[in-house]
Design a protein around this nucleic acid. Structure first.
Length: 270
DNA sequence: CGCACCCCCTGCCGGC
DNA sequence: TGCCGGCAGGGGGTGC
């Protein structure tokens, strides 16, 4: 589910309610996530105060008062919600972290593709493969060109490679390449400077616009207060197979690229 | 190196 | 109505 804009929205919506609060107790109900929840997670969180809530790539980062960082990945179906602690635990609520103000943070993940890890600040650089965050100023056309050069892989696979660029998933890769006018199957190594500029520019505008709409809610996604996003109304190709291209009216096609459903306009994306 | 392919897991939807 | 296959925003591992 959540890509960069959704994770950013979740972090922002949690921050006011979490910052300055202390975890008084943490209950783990299911340890079998993408990586098994470490036995020491509860002890690492309990008693700690939250100093800041942020994001990197697709991870929500919760900075603790001992300098360590709780990194939360929501996989495809994860939710992180701040609610009154009297809320009943629901099916697939795998962790509840109780705060010192009568509220609690609920981690909910039906498919269990997410992960929960407390790490030292030094380990942050390698998180999720260590790619440059897609909204980091360091993600420039020159950088994109440097990681593309000589590569035969498709440009879409490169955009979604978290070890190179972090935060872009399947929905936004489709939208970015549509706005940049580039065929998702084209080879990364063949990108011109002009195309690299178009991709970086489209990445920033699409991700920022999606954040402004508080993310894309297709099925599961909700922010830290349970609210849906609105960017699904602005999607130009994702999920629109057979519909007319908003730019040229040709029919949008669905193909498979990089193992994922890929939507594109065969006329305006070259 | 990069990819196709498989897996993990639950829920939902459409077709029959 | 029920069953079944396919698909879904994530990542990781393997073998070619």
């Amino acid at each position: 589910m959540p890509e960069l804009p959704e994770v950013e929205t979740i972090a922002r919506s949690l921050s006011p309610g979490l910052c300055g609060r202390r975890f008084v107790a943490v209950d783990v109900y299911e340890r079998r996530l993408r990586h098994p929840v470490a036995p020491g997670l509860t002890a690492a969180l309990a008693g700690r105060r939250v100093v800041a809530v942020g994001r990197r790539g697709k991870y929500v980062l919760c900075e603790l008062d001992d300098g360590r960082i709780w990194a939360i990945h929501l996989g495809m179906s994860g939710r992180l919600t701040l609610m009154a602690r009297s809320e009943p635990r629901r099916r697939h609520d795998h962790l509840i972290a109780y705060l010192d103000d009568g509220r609690a943070l609920y981690y909910h993940d039906p498919r269990r593709f997410g992960s929960l890890v407390v790490m030292a600040p030094g380990e942050l650089a390698s998180l999720g493969g260590g790619g440059v965050d897609a909204l980091d100023p360091a993600f420039t056309p020159g950088f994109l060109r440097s990681i593309s050069r000589g590569r035969r892989r498709t440009v879409k696979a490169l955009l979604m490679d978290q070890a190179k660029i972090s935060g872009i998933g399947n929905i936004y890769a489709n939208e970015i390449l549509f706005r940049a006018g580039i065929d998702p199957r084209s080879r990364a190594g063949g990108l011109t400077q002009r195309e690299c500029r178009a991709i970086v520019s489209a990445t920033r505008s699409v991700l920022r616009a999606a954040i402004a709409q508080r993310g894309t809610s297709i099925a599961d996604y909700r922010d830290g207060r349970g609210r849906a996003g609105r960017f699904q109304r602005r999607l130009r190709v994702y999920g629109r197979a057979g519909a007319p291209c908003p730019r040229c009216n040709a029919r949008i096609r669905k193909i498979i690229v990089a193992g994922r459903g890929t939507f594109h306009c065969p006329r305006c994306q070259r």
